[in-house]
C-alpha cells in the first residue's frame, strides 16, 4: 500500500513538471496591459518606446514603464528559466535605454515590487499632477535602490 502511495506521489510530482512543456496558446502572446496615458501629466511616448525596447529582448514577456520630464523608470519581468541571467539582462537593458534616451535619468529594475508599484502608478496617472507624479516616481526609484 505504502509503495503505491509513493509511486503515485512520484508520478504526480513529475507529471506536474511535464505539464509545463505543453504549449498553452494563451501564453504565446503575453497579455499587454491596456492603459490610457492621454491625460497623464507628462507625455508617456518615451515610456512606451522603452517598453517596446525591453520587450524585444529574449525572455522578457512583460515590461512596464513610466517617465517624467527627466526620469525614466522601467520594470520588467523575466521568464523563470532565464533568471540566471537576471543581473546581466538588467544591465543590458539599462545600457540600451541609456543610449536610446540620453536626456533621461534611466532606472531599470526586475524587482516584482517595483513592477507592481509602477503598474499601480500608471493606473492612476490621469488623476495626478506633475508635482505628485515626480514625487511618486522618485519614491519608486528610491525603493528600487534599497538594499537592506
Amino acid at each position: 500500500m505504502k509503495h503505491f502511495i509513493f509511486f503515485f506521489t512520484f508520478l504526480f510530482v513529475f507529471s506536474a513538471c511535464q505539464q509545463n512543456d505543453m504549449v498553452d496558446p494563451t501564453l504565446e502572446q503575453p497579455t499587454k496591459i491596456n492603459y490610457s496615458t492621454k491625460n497623464a501629466p507628462f507625455n508617456q511616448k518615451v515610456a512606451k518606446k522603452a517598453e517596446e525596447i525591453a520587450e524585444s529582448y529574449d525572455g522578457v514577456p512583460k515590461a512596464i514603464s513610466v517617465n517624467t520630464d527627466r526620469k525614466l523608470l522601467l520594470a520588467f519581468q523575466l521568464d523563470h528559466m532565464k533568471r540566471f541571467q537576471l543581473k546581466q539582462k538588467e544591465k543590458t537593458i539599462e545600457k540600451k535605454l541609456k543610449k536610446s534616451f540620453r536626456d533621461y535619468d534611466v532606472t531599470v529594475s526586475s524587482d516584482m515590487k517595483i513592477y507592481w508599484e509602477t503598474e499601480k502608478l500608471i493606473n492612476k496617472l490621469e488623476n495626478l499632477d506633475k508635482r505628485e507624479m515626480n514625487k511618486k516616481v522618485e519614491n519608486i526609484i528610491q525603493l528600487s535602490r534599497e538594499e537592506t
Partner: peptide, 11 residues
C-alpha cells in the same frame, strides 16, 4: 512585498 514597503530583495 504586497502589503508592506519591501522589495523582492529586502523582503
Amino acid at each position: 512585498m504586497y502589503f508592506f514597503h519591501f522589495t523582492q530583495q529586502t523582503a
